[in-house]
């Protein structure tokens, strides 16, 4: 029995990325949009690890490690901005936050 082919992992990553992208476009709740961005990041991480295994390189895993670090910081700052926005606008709907609209 062989290993699971790398192409399947790549296709799964593509599907997960698409779901995340559609989620960012469809949902208007900032919290859920942040979650969908996390989904997309995870799909890319999966691609990195799968290709790293295929090519016999550890760089894929190293890049995923740094991506996880950056994603953690991104979530922290994003949620802080969300709390501040909630203080200003009393809503989590991005369509209501139109202070810069001309």
């Amino acid at each position: 029995m062989q290993d699971v082919p790398t192409t399947w992992f790549l296709l799964l990553g593509a599907i997960l990325f698409t779901i995340g992208a559609v989620g960012v476009l469809v949902r208007r709740n900032i919290l859920v949009m942040l979650m969908c961005i996390e989904l997309m990041m995870n799909a890319v991480n999966l691609t990195f690890v799968a290709l790293g295994r295929e090519l016999g390189s550890l760089t894929g895993q190293v890049v995923v490690f740094f991506t996880i670090v950056v994603a953690a910081v991104e979530v922290t700052v994003g949620l802080a901005i969300l709390i501040e926005l909630n203080r200003l606008y009393q809503t989590a709907d991005v369509d209501e936050v139109a202070g810069l609209k001309g």
């Binding site: 991480n45 996880i68 994603a71």
Partner: peptide, 18 residues
């Protein structure tokens, strides 16, 4: 999936951080 790809450390980091 990371465990299946033989990336144990990334799998643990995924569980702990994410």
């Amino acid at each position: 999936l990371y465990l299946m790809l033989n990336a144990q450390f990334i799998a643990i980091v995924q569980v702990v951080v994410y």
